[in-house]
Simulated scan of single mutants.
Amino acid sequence: MVKTGANVVNIITTLAQLVPPEMTQSAFTWLQQQHFSDKFIDLVKKVHLPEGSDPLERIGYQCDAVEEIIETQSAELSEDAPIGQWRGELDKIRRGLDLIDKDPQKDRKKIKALRHRADSLFNSAFSAAVK
């Protein structure tokens, strides 16, 4: 089922870029059926905002979504789920966001690297939470 969860995330991302938002409703319905919280679903919607949205904001939403998974799904996660590692990575990403946000010139390479880390973290936590 982990592969199914990753496929749903890919579908949501693709649909958000290619079709009107109402077409993605079935993917969000699937998330509800998997017992994800409304807050998590709202954050996933924000992560997949239309092109041109602030990448730093998107990274923040991904971090919030991972925190929501940890808070609401930790009892259902397998015993070997790397929750401690996720929290450590969340702290590092948030510190990176703060540093980039304070820098008057936003370094695209640093943002891209941070976005890659946030994507990997989100995918790891989401895959572990999918039943």
Rank of each mutant, 00 (worst) to 15 (best):
V2A: 09
K3E: 15
T4E: 14
G5T: 08
V8P: 00
V8L: 13
V9L: 15
V9W: 08
N10D: 15
I11D: 14
T14V: 04
T14H: 08
Q17C: 08
E22H: 14
M23F: 15
M23T: 08
T24F: 02
T24C: 14
Q25R: 13
A27T: 08
A27L: 02
F28E: 05
F28Y: 15
F28V: 04
T29G: 10
T29V: 13
T29H: 11
L31N: 10
Q33E: 15
Q33V: 06
H35T: 13
H35Q: 15
S37H: 10
F40N: 09
D42Y: 07
K46T: 07
L49S: 15
L49V: 10
L49Y: 11
E51N: 08
S53K: 06
S53Y: 10
D54H: 00
E57T: 08
E57L: 11
E57H: 05
E57Y: 06
R58S: 10
G60L: 03
G60A: 07
G60C: 01
Y61M: 06
Q62S: 03
Q62N: 02
Q62K: 12
Q62L: 03
C63Y: 00
A65T: 01
E67N: 12
E68I: 00
I70V: 08
T72I: 03
Q73P: 02
Q73I: 04
S74Q: 09
A75W: 02
A75P: 00
E76K: 15
L77K: 00
L77T: 01
S78H: 10
E79A: 12
E79Q: 11
D80W: 07
I83M: 11
I83V: 15
G84P: 05
Q85E: 15
Q85W: 05
K92C: 01
I93V: 08
R94Q: 12
R95S: 10
R95M: 10
L99P: 01
I100M: 04
K102T: 07
D103L: 02
D103R: 07
P104G: 01
P104S: 02
K106C: 08
R108H: 08
K110P: 02
I111S: 05
K112L: 05
A113R: 06
L114W: 04
L114N: 01
R115I: 00
H116Y: 08
R117A: 12
A118R: 01
D119M: 04
F122Y: 09
F122M: 12
A125T: 01
S127H: 03
